[in-house]
Each structure stands twice: as C-alpha cells, then as structure tokens.
C-alpha cells in the first residue's frame, strides 16, 4: 500500500475512519458482482471465466442480471456506435461505487475494426470511464482474472469516507493505449441519468 506524503499524514492515519474505510474497501474488494453483459466473442471467454476451470466465484464475483445490483461492468466485446449509448445507460443505472473493466481489443480501442469500420466505436472509454484495460483478442480467462486482480488493487485504495483521489487507468503490464482517457458523453447523445430520482 502506497502512502500519501504530506503534513498531517501521521495524524490522518490514526483516525478511526481510516480503519473503517479500509474495512469497507475490503468488503467491496471481495464482493465484486459483475453485470451479465457481453456483445461479442470476448463474452465467450467471460463465460468461461465463470466456469469450473477458472471460476471467478472464488474471488467473490457472481453475475447479476440487473445493473442496480452490479458493482462491476465488464465490457466484453465490440461496441458499435448504436450500442455505446446503451452501454452508457447501463453504466448509469449501476449504483456507486461502480467499476468498469474494458475486456479485449474492441472495447479497448476498436481492435480489428478501428481502421475500416464506420460503425464500431474505437474504445468504450469514450462513453464510460474505464478502470482497467485487459488487452487481447479475445483475452484468455487468465488475462481477465489478471485484470480483475488489478482492479482489486484499485478497489482496495477506494475510500468511501475519506478523501478520494483520481487514479491513472490500469493496463496490466502496459501503458494506457492511445492516451486513454474518459471523454464526457456528447451532449446530444441519447443518454440519461440512469433513471435516478
């Protein structure tokens, strides 16, 4: 665990809220329910990751059919422009705290479709903020689990009560592709606020 440097640091660490925060993060880390959602061949690998050989249930991950109960969205597969706004809506329907793993080349950057396709979105990070990029076409379940472990590192540092800092995006063992960053959704894109009151 990396510690922040600065005045008041020693005092800050002894505040009880920090310990509670650590406990809350522990709970979130071990209970990442993911959204049942796949758009292409990465989905097959995602299913395989839930199967007997790889079994992400070991990490406390179970699939949920409704975004309200999911903590983690694994964007598995090619996202077209038409689908992207739906993905955005699903992401908005998830309750905070929520995380996004971009699985496979298509979701990372458009993959094999990035050059000659008029319809494929070049990376889902243009619509939703991505926490972890998992490279591969499609990534094997091991790669996905590696990405989930990277995400768990991130979740461990998540502070519910304390101060939150923005963190760089994670690619397991790589630099962020093409200067990955989240762009806010276009103002006229068909996306709401997830139907919250």
């Amino acid at each position: 665990m990396t510690r922040r440097e600065g005045p008041g640091d020693a005092f800050d660490d002894r505040i009880h809220l920090t310990a509670v925060d650590e406990f809350l993060a522990w709970g979130k880390e071990h209970s990442l329910f993911y959204l049942l959602f796949a758009t292409a061949c990465c989905g097959i690998e995602l299913m395989q990751a839930g199967g007997p050989r790889y079994d992400v249930d070991r990490l406390g991950m179970i699939p949920r059919a409704t975004p309200r109960q999911a903590d983690l969205m694994i964007v598995a597969g090619t996202i077209t422009h038409k689908m992207a706004s739906r993905v955005r809506t699903l992401w908005e329907q998830m309750g905070e705290p929520r995380w996004v793993v971009s699985m496979g080349s298509c979701a990372n950057s458009g993959g094999p479709f990035s050059k000659w396709s008029y319809s494929v979105l070049n990376g889902i990070d243009k619509y939703v903020p991505v926490d972890v990029y998992v490279p591969g076409c499609p990534p094997r379940p091991e790669a996905l689990i590696d990405g989930v472990m990277a995400l768990r590192e991130r979740v461990r540092r998540y502070r519910t009560l304390g101060e939150r800092s923005t963190e760089p995006h994670v690619v397991a063992g790589h630099e962020a592709p093409f200067g990955a960053r989240c762009q806010l959704p276009p103002p006229d894109a068909p996306a709401g606020d997830g139907g919250r009151a």
């Binding site: 422009h81 992207a84 990035s114 979105l121 243009k126 093409f178 276009p186 894109a189």
Partner: peptide, 17 residues
C-alpha cells in the same frame, strides 16, 4: 458520430477509407 470521433487521439493510418 454525435461528436464522438472515429479515430482515437494520435491514431492515423497510411491508407484509410
């Protein structure tokens, strides 16, 4: 499409459609 560019930042191709 709706302000979302088709190419990523810094992405370019020698041949393109």
């Amino acid at each position: 499409y709706h302000g979302v560019p088709h190419l990523r930042d810094g992405q370019s191709f020698s041949t393109s459609p």
